[in-house]
Design a protein around this nucleic acid. Sequence first.
DNA 1: AGGTTAGTAATTTTT
DNA 2: TTACTAACCT
Length: 733
Amino acid sequence: MNAPQPPDYLARLNAEQREAVETLDGPLLVLAGAGTGKTRVLTTRFAHLLKTGRAWPGQVLSVTFTNKAAREMRERVAAIIGQPADGLWLGTFHALCARMLRRHAELVGLTSSFTILDTDDQLRLLKQVMDAAGVDLKRWPAPGLMAVIQRWKDRGIVPGKVTPAEDSDYANNRARGLYEAYQQRLRELNTADFGDLMLHMVEILKTHPEVLADWHRRFRYILVDEYQDTNLVQYYWLRLLAQGHRNICCVGDDDQSIYSWRGAEIENILRFEKDFEGARIVRLESNYRSTKPILGAAAGLIAHNTGRLGKTLRAGRNDAEGDKVRVVSLWDSEEEARMVGERVEQAQRAGQNLDEVAILVRAGFQTRAFEERMITLGLPYRVVGGLRFYERQEIRDALAYLRVLAQPADDLAFERIINTPKRGLGDTGMKALHDIAREQRIPLYQAAERALPGLRPKPRQALGELLQGFGRWRELLGRDGHVVTAATLLDESGYTEMWKQDKSPEAPGRLDNLKEFVRALGEFENLAGFLDHTALVMENEENATAEKLSMMTLHAAKGLEFDMVFLPGWEEGLFPSQRSLDEGGEKALEEERRLAYVGITRGRKQVVISCAANRRIYGNWTSSIPSRFIDELPPEHVEVVNGAGQARQRAAELPGMFNHAPMMARRPRVSESPAWDVKERAPRPDAMRVGQRVFHQKFGNGNVIGVDDDKLDIEFDKAGTKRVLDRFVEKIG
DNA sequence: AGGTTAGTAATTTTT
DNA sequence: TTACTAACCT
């Protein structure tokens, strides 16, 4: 029966990975430490299910958290099974739920063509609901209630299940009522927000046994990635679906759970054995990514957490010896930025590829200081996780136009574009439309049609043209297709003209984005397909060509790896974040520590942790002490370096040097930072005059059109007009 | 209606 | 420091 030789794809696995792949039946939890080949196990397991004849591709449900993970898995599965991976139930929780919900929408009061709301629309809708209920939006800001509602949805709580105690003291115990009204409005608009996709499906599976049985028949095996990040409603969904065959395999790492503030329940993974009776646990502990000192430092740090499932990373490579993790203490944040820049340059001179270098920070604003430094040094960088393509204003506007085209009753979209570009419709005009819509119970679009004769001349004219336009464009859509229609619509509505008239430096870029938007439309069969895609896959498609170093938050870095990793800002208050600690106490501290663990384990060869004694926060200088996490690093894997580059003996000595650091250093001693005080690359040019031709590292060539002390207004050839400091530009020509 | 100015708040964000 | 919002003026 058993083949004497294991198939090729199994032979490449180590013993623990193989166990995780070959344990096919019954519940299985794979505890996969950082860099232990998690994705490989998941995809190989998928392939193994098919090759052993246990399931057809369509009978395996594979769930991930991100579109990126889903895409990668799809590609790798396709490569292994040697055919395009079409017709798979492989995707994010939300995408899979949306797909399922289209089949059962009527069971929760929607139609199968429901639309999916993004965060922006959610908030606007909630604001309207609150406004209608007479809530004082200044006293009770809508984002606060949005968060409360989302947490309820994360826990699978429908309005009727909110207990009085849980009604929170938000807006005098009106949260529950507002939640109910919000859900009602969503149904009226035939839309679902992200949370609803999960919530509705769980409700359906819970209350309709025949539907559940149907899905049981379909899915024989379930694979789940990043299980430590699941929230309660996702857990309920998985548990319901797994009741059928009990073949559920969850892969995750409790030490990398860093999204509790988004509703993720680390308890889900800790409880796995209890939840799924007879579950087996396989630990992947051989790390193929990092050197021994890096693994040792990470292990020593995470050992300070309690309530772990427990797991020890071993170096899985033969060449795992390497440099110790370096801890560098500096006088201030500017010196810290210089130190990082200097070390990056050093590494680059030694042949290091910049794509393999990353600066990982606790909070997004921290990248700024490093960006400025990199510009000065002329080191190319990219900031990962900025605003994504579909989150840009002009793209969201264009999208709103198309949504109105596809579904005129989409009030939120219509409201977004009705006065963009300006059509002379202000608050009073909008209020009139809303009144009509509410009284006659019709969508805003129809309300606008009816209100037209009664409007003042200017809006009457402009709005009339818009409504007529939609009539034309709808015809065009049937005749010439969605791409041509979109281009025509954006032109005739005056939307592109609006940006052409705009003199701000961003305008040309926005026009480019709009062109890209129309081009992206062409990749879809029809408009509906495109709209669904954009709602669920809000991604930024960066054409990563040139070699650049990366900057991003620690959260964004999860799942990535780099040769060289910088972890700046390890100071009490900043990391661990004071705000987290205030909100979540000891649990939050442990999550911050996991975040630190994630950071360290991103590094393959070199990790440089740093802290500054003085830092400018919101404009004024504040002094701080090194993070407790620095003390928690095991000394044998760490080399402590002070700003001057002299190695110290032990990490424990480090805090001492800050004990008497002067408070509130208004002007830190920039000139007294010997080792890292590298020469300025772009010395202050003398006598910059209007008309001077200059070069800027980031924005390219341009002409000076204004001078204000050391600040220059420059009209760049490509990047528009910007105000920059003179030391960032060089005279040319 | 729309632009300007003053005041205030300020993590992390896979969908 | 910056970025966003709310009141205020034209």
